[in-house]
Design a protein around this nucleic acid. Structure first.
Lengths: 149, 149
DNA sequence: CAAGATTTAATCTTAAACAATTTAATACAT
DNA sequence: ATGTATTAAATTGTTTAAGATTAAATCTTG
């Protein structure tokens, strides 16, 4: 069952997920800087642009994040004027997040981002990095026997 | 070209990578705590267990990390006695990382981790989270038209 | 060989992540 | 109804992640 090769970095399925996630975030960074958002902040905005208003726990379920991450993040976004936080009247434990008009308007500026990113991917992503990751992912698609999460 | 649905969270390929990566790291955490490692520290150990000695820049290429992340990480691991850092004689700019015997020995304790993780996955990962991610990944495998990185 | 460019790691700063704990509100069981 | 459990968010402390800059060594090129 246990195998020495289980500990090879290239046999860890977790690693391409970890590395790809960070590389994509890096690509986003210059684009998001133009609208003064970080990547996790952008994810919050994506949710709010869909729903306008949501309680923290539901937002957390959507993004797989807890209040220990979300609370400081949302406070920062409130300071920027993108949203407001208020306790619910029905249940004082819950906090409702509401998009402000400034937050609404930001959506217009954001519409070009997905396409810009695709261009970024070709221009600024080092080709060796892409190949490395494609190789990793391909390996796992081609050979499930050695997968280690 | 631009489409309103481009900004739907569920159309972002980046998100399942980001979320899966964090969920896997969370699963690792209790297992790695037993051998006093964090997930990125574990990745460094995986590389060192393969090569015993490596310079920082090469390690960075392997893990897609720069010195601004690696230097503090490696210093912490040096304090734990897992490795030593020393300047190369041939090129004083480069820093060589070498596994200590303590670092070597840790490998034995780590051999069970990949299998333990698979059990963790079944026991401790909330099934709804897994289903959510499977749905996301499936969506992208099934429909490349709407992919937004 | 000397000036400028490049490489390598370290430093500084800001922002996420997340475990563990705390605080407050609500649900619930006897 | 009251004490106990549960839930929601916030707080605290530690570790990553990464942009921007710095400092030192090495390479390059005239």
């Amino acid at each position: 069952m246990k195998n020495d090769s289980d500990l090879f970095l290239d046999n860890q399925l977790c690693f391409p997920f970890y590395a790809t996630s960070r590389l994509i975030t890096r690509l986003y960074q210059p684009l998001l800087k133009k609208i003064d958002l970080t990547y996790p902040q952008y994810l919050v905005m994506l949710v709010l642009w869909e729903s306008d208003s949501i309680i923290v726990s539901q937002l957390g379920k959507r993004l797989f994040l807890n209040s220990n991450t979300l609370t400081p993040l949302l406070k920062k976004m409130e300071q920027k004027g993108l949203l407001i936080r208020k306790r619910s009247n029905e249940d004082e434990r819950t906090v409702i997040i509401e998009l402000t008009s400034k937050g609404q308007k930001l959506k217009t500026k954001a519409t070009g981002i997905p396409n810009s990113l695709k261009e970024q991917l070709n221009i600024n992503m080092p080709m060796e990095d892409i190949l490395e990751l494609k190789k990793s992912l391909w390996k796992f698609l081609g050979n499930f026997e050695t997968i280690q999460l």
